[in-house]
């Protein structure tokens, strides 16, 4: 039975169900239980956003709090994965990748290739991204393009509770290293999610809305804004098709190009900064493999090439919103009416 739960609960449920199914699944991270060594409650936090709440007592000995030593514990998750474990490690904010990226991109990502196919590293690195909580420059970035750039990593961006559970279940069962991006402003969004475990395959885009005038490819937290824009566009007679790639690595280029073949117009919405972004990547795909399909220049809707600002008005300007997306779609349509 499907019922309505939050994005946060969906992730928690996927991890819990996989822990129940497979004793190799363990959870680790800073305050993933919370309260270690203190005189008060154990499982005090369940992670800084409460995503792993309740797992500590349900699965004794399998939820490990860590010192604030991202290199050591992310590396430990990777090492454990080479020896039959399936760790789910939390790199709290993706902004913290700077202090542990080596273990992710030089170790986990490369083992299989460097070792001639003789390595399997089924680690999941959960991490929060995205602006909207006024957390400013070092706690708000959308750094998924950096991980997408690295061969050997799979990069996942769920845009709804349904996707969060199915993609997390797939991530844990997947034999490759997966970086799982959770948009921190989405934890309380709700949606219908089946109670049973299920998987969503990587590399298959979801067509979140069908339309024939313009293709809007939106990533992660931008999907909801693209849908909002599409509703607004519909009232002015423009039908936007919204594509949610769900994973940036692998990327379902086929669905994007198929949609482009129908619409001839492309808008890419990406919360990251514009240079070497997913927006640039998809625009290059369209230019290289969909040139003959294009009836208008590709519109890239991204954050500006700046750090994420703190003050509310500035942050609101920073993040692409429905209005900007709709304007870009209109510009594409107007180009070739």
């Amino acid at each position: 039975m499907a019922r309505t739960i939050s994005y946060r609960e969906a992730i928690n449920e996927a991890i819990a169900q996989e822990m129940a199914r497979d004793p190799a699944v363990i959870v680790m991270g800073e305050d993933n239980a919370g309260g270690a060594g203190g005189p008060g409650a154990e499982d005090a936090w369940g992670g800084v956003m409460g995503v792993t709440s309740g797992l500590y007592h349900r699965f004794p000995g399998r939820v490990l709090d860590t010192p604030i030593s991202e290199s050591a514990f992310i590396g430990a998750a990777i090492g454990a994965a080479t020896r039959g474990m399936r760790p789910v490690a939390e790199l709290m904010f993706v902004d913290f990748m700077g202090v542990c990226f080596d273990q992710i991109y030089n170790q986990a990502a490369k083992f299989r290739y460097m070792f001639g196919g003789n390595a399997v590293t089924p680690v999941v690195i959960r991490t929060m991204y995205g602006a909207g909580l006024r957390a400013a420059a070092q706690h708000s970035q959308a750094l998924y393009p950096l991980f997408t750039h690295i061969p050997g990593l799979k990069v996942v961006l769920p845009s709804s509770p349904y996707e969060a559970k199915g993609l997390m279940t797939q991530a844990i069962r997947d034999d490759d290293p997966v970086v799982f991006f959770e948009h921190k402003a989405m934890y309380d969004t709700t949606g219908e999610v089946p109670e049973e475990p299920y998987t969503i395959p990587f590399g298959e885009a979801e067509t979140a809305r069908e339309g024939s005038d313009v293709t809007v490819v939106a990533f992660g937290g931008m999907v909801a804004r693209a849908l909002e824009a599409a509703d607004a566009l519909a009232s002015s007679g423009i039908e936007a098709e919204v594509i949610d790639p769900r994973t940036t690595s692998p990327l379902d280029t086929e669905t994007i190009l198929e949609s482009l073949a129908e619409t001839g117009r492309l808008v890419v919405v990406d919360e990251s900064t514009p240079r070497c972004s997913m927006a640039a990547d998809v625009a290059a795909l369209a230019a290289g493999e969909g040139f003959a399909l294009l009836r208008a220049p590709v519109q890239q809707v991204t954050a500006p090439h700046t750090p994420v600002p703190f003050s509310a008005g500035l942050e609101d300007l920073y993040v692409p919103d429905a209005q900007r997306i709709a304007n870009a779609a209109k510009a594409a349509v107007d180009w070739s009416r």
């Binding site: 199915g166 089946p194 049973e196 299920y198 998987t199 969503i200 979801e206 067509t207």
Partner: peptide
């Protein structure tokens, strides 16, 4: 057969068991 019909079936088919 539209996309939604296919997607709903896939949702079902991806459930464990």
């Amino acid at each position: 057969v539209n996309r939604r019909l296919v997607d709903d079936l896939l949702r079902y088919k991806r459930i464990d068991g």
